[in-house]
Design a protein around this nucleic acid. Structure first.
Lengths: 267, 267
DNA sequence: TCATTTTTTGACTTTTCGTCATTATAGGTG
DNA sequence: CACCTATAATGACGAAAAGTCAAAAAATGA
């Protein structure tokens, strides 16, 4: 089910329709290898889903895929490398969702809310992918990955930043937001990123401190987002517009399928 | 050097002077075991510092401490358990720093700035401890820890929340901050926590995306904090008070030694 | 068809985790 | 002081998984 979701809805690991990505000329063989690469990532994700990060071993990946260990190691230099690669693909998936959020009909701040809805839905719908992203920020993984792969991950993040930049520039154009002399768009993106990453990382933990459990509110991320956007003086302020309603609208329009699925599985 | 810092300045792993902690009656033998527990954590930290998370093995911990592996496993149920325990102690250390921040002479918002200075200094001064906290939010570690230890970690976090609560209540008392009908103090703490955790986690990564590298500003966390506190309408707003100056003052007064040390090693 | 390059394989080595039967020690008791 | 018991320490061992590599298989091309 989730498998299907990943493949069909999010195109996890696929590289089609990624308009701004350079697709190098490939031989038939290389195509097959690339295809298998994608396949392996999906299988790895499933193993992690079912058996946790510790249950995921290279032997299992080999036998589940039908290929030998040596072939697996032709694709990934280490087990941790698999995690980073999944994280990269996760970020690409997220980029697609951000683009969708950018298409939401509404003011510049509504669109940013849509962006945060996208991030929240992503982290709930694909907790394993989200955890791969989180884990890839951890020395345990970084230490055992190739420099190139870390660089790839940074590029994927940079893509996200580029998209986020559009939200900001639009807002400045539309005069909903003014850039203070001291702040750059990078700084504003960083603030949004930090609060989104922090909120979701803390919320997504199964075991949580009381403080977080006490909140237990589907809109807790929105509260934080509102605080940050109000702090930036991004118009209209949360006192003058009902962003809960916007949040719901986003969920029910552009992310209707995903929301329905989440409601169904009760997460 | 750092070792000395940890032991003397931060009392990492020590349980003395922790006024609100229940200290059970202990026999001489139990005292010795507790003492060794602390010792082992310090050694573990040093191994991680020197050789990374992968370089850290239970065998090394055993031989470096002079005890046998069996004894090490009397203290910790798994390698990951060591990480969680370090994270717990790290949070206790952080709690001490928060208390120090609470003693900063200034308005309620100045004190919160001091709290964030404390968090930032902690994460720079003890990157390994910070990474243990981050890593402990990761399934890789959670999956292999005992429920009790995770609970301990949550309790340590809860202590931090309690301290943070004082900052908020003081501000409400002093009428620098008003609690909206919809928001709880928990929600406000969560917002601060999320932005602090997110900002520091993203900044502390050795390898970073361009966006973050471009910022490269010692006050980047302060910007985010200002945005959040302005968004809460915590008086006085950043437009009416120079919080960079406050940040510097905090660094140069209550955290003078730590700041000097950080400046010296250039981090 | 045959030679050469590329890819795949899975047995093997190495590393490290975690266990447990055995040994040692401390503390109490007659 | 000798002895006894409970508690703790030991390190050899088994198991599991990471990662390697020489040999086999497959693809490519002349």
């Amino acid at each position: 089910m989730l498998q299907l979701l990943s493949e069909e809805m999010f195109k996890f690991g696929s590289e089609i329709n990624n308009d701004d990505e350079v697709i190098p000329q490939r031989s038939k063989k290389q195509m097959a290898i690339a295809e298998r690469h994608r396949e392996l990532l999906l299988i790895a994700k499933d193993i992690i889903s079912a058996e946790g990060f510790h249950g995921f071993t290279m032997d299992k990946l080999a036998s589940a895929s039908g290929y030998s260990k040596g072939t697996i190691y032709n694709h990934f230099v280490s087990k941790e490398d698999v995690i980073v690669t999944i994280s990269c693909e996760a970020l690409k998936t997220l980029a697609q969702m951000y683009k969708k959020a950018y298409g939401f009909e509404g003011g510049s701040r509504d669109k940013v809310v849509a962006l945060h809805v996208a991030y929240r839905i992503f982290s709930r719908l694909e907790p394993v992918l989200f955890m791969c992203v989180l884990t890839s920020k951890t020395p345990w993984v970084v230490e055992k990955s190739t420099a190139e792969n870390i660089e790839k991950q940074n590029l994927a993040e940079e893509k996200l930043v580029e998209i986020a930049d559009k939200f900001i520039l639009d807002a400045i154009d539309g005069e909903d937001l003014t850039l203070a002399a001291t702040a750059s768009t990078d700084a504003l993106i960083f603030a949004n990123w930090a609060v989104a990453f922090g909120s979701n990382a803390l919320l997504n933990n199964a075991t949580n401190s009381q403080c977080i459990q006490r909140i237990e509110d589907p809109y807790s991320v929105l509260y934080n987002v509102n605080i940050v956007l109000d702090g930036m003086n991004w118009q209209p302020l949360s006192s003058r517009r009902d962003y809960k309603k916007v949040w719901r609208e986003v969920e029910q329009t552009i992310f209707a399928d995903e929301s329905a699925y989440l409601a169904q599985i009760g997460r």
